[in-house]
């Protein structure tokens, strides 16, 4: 299994608090991996560091053969990484389809081309077709003209997935995609993830606490606690690991 993402001895502290204390992990291309760990163990921070939202204090991150350590958020996106948010971050005043069109980079986004429709009409049409297809896939077809602030929590999670798909990214990092979502929809979301992974070869790393729902969909699990990886491997192996049982599933 060739690794698409490798994280090596990544460290991050905020002031005196050590949040990531030398994280090592290797995610195989085209796989779905889950990242688990108690609240505050540094899962979101790890995703923030990988995608360039915050800079690591040490260690290296390699994605698809490129060293992306210390790159900016938009630069890691150009490399093919995209993430979703634990608390959804829709562009509130934009409609669902407009939200989906944001990641599609379009020649009409420059001041030189914007006033001249002929320069961007074709690209826009293509992006719209893509966005409609994605809206169908994530089940938001009925809502394309709804402003995203009017969506329910679950629909916002779907929109997050849709936007990530529109990015054309090779790897999607999802921060708690099914938290606060009813079990039926949660299964639907993870089924979609599996479908997308199989059909398009996209790699997933999913932070998720709800093991009962998620474990059956994933190829492997990383468990972290206090900023270090304490176990990794197949789902059964990791959830039965004594350290994981103690720190996470605990008494």
């Amino acid at each position: 299994m060739a690794g698409i993402l490798s994280v090596s001895r990544v460290a991050k502290h905020f002031g005196g608090i050590v949040v990531l204390d030398g994280i090592d992990m290797e995610v195989g291309r085209g796989s779905i991996h889950q990242l688990i760990g108690p609240n505050g163990s540094g899962k979101t921070t790890l995703v923030n560091v990988i995608t360039g939202l915050v800079r690591p204090d040490g260690g290296t991150i390699t994605f698809d053969g490129t060293d992306i350590t210390g790159m900016d958020l938009y630069e890691t996106h150009e490399e093919g990484l995209v993430r979703t948010w634990q608390i959804p971050k829709p562009f509130r005043s934009l409609t669902v389809i407009e939200n989906l069109l944001i990641p599609a980079s379009n020649p009409g986004e420059s001041f030189q081309n914007a006033p001249l429709k002929s320069r961007w009409r074709d690209g826009e049409q293509e992006a719209i077709d893509g966005a409609l297809a994605v809206a169908d896939t994530v089940g938001l077809a009925e809502k394309i003209d709804t402003r995203s602030m009017e969506l329910s929590g679950g629909q916002m999670k779907l929109l997050e997935l849709g936007r990530a798909m529109m990015s054309g990214a090779a790897m999607i990092l999802m921060d708690e995609p099914i938290a606060g979502v009813n079990p039926t929809l949660a299964h639907e979301i993870l089924e979609k993830v599996t479908e997308i992974c199989k059909a398009q070869g996209i790699t997933f790393l999913i932070i998720e606490h709800r093991l009962d729902i998620s474990l059956r969909y994933v190829d492997g699990v990383f468990a972290i606690d206090k900023g270090v990886v304490i176990a990794e491997g197949g789902p059964d192996e990791v959830v039965n690991h004594p350290g994981v049982v103690e720190s996470y599933l605990g008494a």
Partner: peptide, 24 residues
């Protein structure tokens, strides 16, 4: 135009726009 849409996205959530590849 796509530019106007992008500007409103940056206004609504600069970080999310960055994560979707916009050099804000």
């Amino acid at each position: 135009s796509p530019l106007g849409r992008m500007l409103r996205a940056v206004r609504d959530d600069e970080v999310a726009a960055g994560a979707l590849g916009k050099d804000t």
